[in-house]
Amino acid sequence: MSTPDNARKPYHSRMTRDWWLQQRYYRLYMLREATVLPLLFFLGCLLYGLYSLQHSEMQWLSFAQFMQQGWVIALNALALLASLYHAKTFFALFPRVMPLAPPLLMVAGQWLASLAVIITLLWLAGVS
């Protein structure tokens, strides 16, 4: 029943650009989303490596040299940590989205499955 001359004047507040800094919960969410950034760097390295491999030996050596730099190793280590963190959050959320078995069992199952895939890949690649 709001008529033009009535006393209502609802106040609409806007979300500020730093809304995600205001709560611990939002910060953790943004951290989860931000895990994609170091992964992008890792993927860049991977593409660069593949390109170098097919281009020339010289190119490959320069790639290898690039990869040996401290900051590159650090960023790749960060990418590993980030993907592990992302996996952890993903595995924890999964049982809530598809409640197929007790949550703890599902989380453990996912880690075991990931481990199995890694071992299989390593075995296929001939690492023993």
Binding site: Q23, Y25, Y26, Y29, E33, L93
Partner: peptide, 9 residues
């Protein structure tokens, strides 16, 4: 929804 998850919190 982007699964921020704060609703459940």
């Amino acid at each position: 929804c982007t699964f921020v998850g704060s609703c459940s919190e």
